[in-house]
Design a protein around this nucleic acid. Sequence first.
DNA 1: GTGATAAGTTAGTAATTGATTACTATCTTG
DNA 2: CAAGATAGTAATCAATTACTAACTTATCAC
Lengths: 202, 202
Amino acid sequence: MYTHSKHLPADERRAVTVKTVVELAGSQNPSEITTAAIAKHMNLTQGALFRHFPNKEAIWQATMEWVAQRLLARIDRAAVGIESPLTAMQAMFMSHIEFVVEHPGVPRMMFGELQRAEPTPAKHMVRTLIQRYGERLHLLIEKGKSCGELSATLDADAAVTLFIGTIQGLVLQSLLAGEVGRIRHDAPRVFAIYQRGIGRLQ
Amino acid sequence: MYTHSKHLPADERRAVTVKTVVELAGSQNPSEITTAAIAKHMNLTQGALFRHFPNKEAIWQATMEWVAQRLLARIDRAAVGIESPLTAMQAMFMSHIEFVVEHPGVPRMMFGELQRAEPTPAKHMVRTLIQRYGERLHLLIEKGKSCGELSATLDADAAVTLFIGTIQGLVLQSLLAGEVGRIRHDAPRVFAIYQRGIGRLQ
DNA sequence: GTGATAAGTTAGTAATTGATTACTATCTTG
DNA sequence: CAAGATAGTAATCAATTACTAACTTATCAC
């Protein structure tokens, strides 16, 4: 049942907060998102946020946890049941792109968090996320090499870096164009080049 | 003659300011660089900065102008006199990487500037820079296609996006590793995959 | 129903930030 | 050398920020 009540249980309020941060990051510089802006966007007073989070850093941490969980779940789901490693990588790529289009603020939050000088919990969360992401890719790449789909001489580390860089490049282009939707159109074309770079020579 | 004088001509002071910002961006989040931090790093009082710049935004604009000029000059110099388009692209790539290693704050400033919601002069400068960068790449790619070095069916737009994304991915990895030097080691390996992706099939 | 508690509001605080100003020091030039 | 021009200092301003606390209201177990 839908309720307009302003009173929400703590866990729901926290969930709404995280969702709000992700939304705001899609339309403005993540590092400029203030607690006041978050509160306003969810029809709450600023002070009320601190009933549910000890400080702003905790809000960021919760947000990055949400991101890590959802993104990993999404790419895992995309790759499951696909026997061809290359096809699985393509599915991972496209689902990641879909995630980014749905939540354009996510890659920007991640990049912004990584360049903080001090080691914040949120930064640690991003590191862990990318590490796990890399592990999954490494597995697929090794599998692809042994089954002959990928070049036997392929540099796996470089291939992982380029996979992530490919997405990063698309995000940059969408920032330049000012429209996120373009990324959906460009993604397959860019991945085609990547695929050619790692695939077996024909 | 070296002088410890605190009095500098206005243009020199502006040049020192820009250099300082670039340096600071290499060790801390660009968006967290305050005018006080800039002044302190160049042994100046904070207020004095506003004798040379009307506001902070002008400092950023001057910095991005410096970046655009130096980066474009560097990649142009790297590619000049190289007849093979693919070799020229590789030279551009490596000189860009060298530039990033020398000034690690640059790609972070650029990315950070691009995700600002409001259209700042600095943001416009970054846009122009990348646009010109893309034009140079496009020329080389078309040349490479007609001379047979690159795949005739290559999607030039996608190739440009991936070229820039490749660098972006390397920057991201260096942020993860925490050491910029690694990028110099990884760059040729990542470019090798890219080259394979755009090159003529063998 | 009635209290207890969870959740929200209002109104603050202290610290930080970009920017301004009155004044001083230094350089340059007729 | 004198005097205007240039550059720098130090104090201060208004605005913004994350965060806190006293008070109020809604929700729920009994």
